[in-house]
Simulated scan of single mutants.
Amino acid sequence: MLTVDFTHFPLTAGDTLLDLGCGEGRHVINAYIAADITAVGVDLSATDLRTAQARQRPFAKVGGHFLLQQADALQLPFADHSFDKIICSEVLEHLPDYAGALREIQRVLKPGGLLAISVPRAWPEKICWAFSAEYHQVEGGHIRIFDSGQLNGEIEQLGFRRYKRHWAHALHAPFWWLKCALWQRQDQSRLIRAYHKLLVWDLMQKPWLTQTLEKLLNPLMGKSVVMYYRTEESQ
């Protein structure tokens, strides 16, 4: 399930791309498949990185490079201006020092480079928090709710200029509300299991009905806000 839309974040052969907080590899693998680029994924979780490596193997190809590395978002092991493009999707809400991560992104992105950032949208996230304290108190959970306008202002103060914004995953918002409302017995809930099957069907089959419904609902209740930036040509 992709959150970043590569229509708004075009990849060019020869690009060097960083997926910061790549998890199990959804964006970095899709970027590697899409173009002959050097796709680098970093994450703190060695387990997630092993999963990402296994998922990428069937797509190995001639042309482009795929690299994974365990690293801290606050101390990236890369030289200044190393990357043409950076993705940071559903990561900042987990980090105590998200501003430090943004400064590292600024450091390693080339002048004129592109950045895609997504975080949970505020009002759907507030409903999750209201239904369940455990949702955001679990280890590695969300530790803040972002105001996207304020976050955008902080990013633009670092020399980025936003060129596109959209919302994503509207059909997932009610699913998470249900999980939070039934947190203690979610594993036994037939409704949650049925909804999960619907989401998997949508992901795998991409039927016209659910795909169109999500596009219509995303501006109203998309669970994530996705923002795209370009850096200044000279920094």
Rank of each mutant, 00 (worst) to 15 (best):
L67E: 09
A46R: 14
F66I: 08
F83V: 12
A31S: 14
Q205S: 00
V200A: 01
G159F: 15
P58K: 13
Q70P: 01
L213I: 04
F59R: 06
A116Q: 02
D15Q: 05
Q53H: 05
L17M: 15
G100N: 13
P124L: 01
D187I: 09
P174I: 03
L203V: 08
V4D: 04
G112T: 13
P58M: 07
K206P: 03
A130M: 14
D80M: 01
H27N: 06
W177G: 09
Q184G: 13
T51K: 15
R57T: 05
L220A: 00
G41T: 00
Q69I: 01
L178A: 12
W176C: 01
R103N: 13
G149N: 12
K85H: 14
C128F: 13
H65Y: 10
P10C: 10
H65N: 11
G113I: 13
G100C: 11
D19K: 03
P58F: 05
Q211D: 12
L67K: 00
S234E: 08
H136A: 11
V91Q: 00
V28Y: 04
R185H: 15
L216F: 05
S132R: 15
Q184S: 15
L17R: 02
W176R: 04
Q211C: 09
Q69E: 10
A116G: 00
V200E: 06
P77K: 13
A99C: 08
A52K: 04
Q56W: 11
P219V: 00
Q150F: 08
S132Y: 13
E90A: 12
Q188A: 10
I33W: 08
W183P: 03
G21S: 03
T210P: 14
F6P: 04
H142Y: 05
L109R: 07
A54C: 03
S224W: 06
D15K: 03
V226M: 07
Q137D: 15
T51D: 03
C180G: 04
W201R: 15
L203P: 02
M221D: 02
I127N: 07
L76T: 09
S132G: 13
W177S: 09
S118N: 11
M1F: 07
I29V: 12
A46T: 14
E156K: 15
V42N: 08
L44M: 10
V4R: 06
L49W: 08
K206S: 04
D187P: 08
E233F: 01
Q137L: 15
L92I: 02
G21T: 02
G113N: 10
E154M: 13
A173D: 06
A31E: 00
A133E: 14
R162F: 10
I192Q: 07
A170Y: 03
P77G: 11
R103I: 14
D84E: 11
V108F: 10
V4I: 09
V226F: 02
D80S: 05
S118E: 02
P77V: 09
Q56V: 12
T231A: 12
E139K: 14
F160R: 02
S89Y: 04
D84F: 15
L44F: 00
L203D: 12
L109K: 04
Q69A: 11
L76C: 08
A133N: 15
H169W: 03
K215C: 06
G149W: 06
K223P: 01
L102I: 10
K110E: 02
W123H: 02
I87C: 11
L102D: 03
Q106W: 06
L191C: 07
R57S: 10
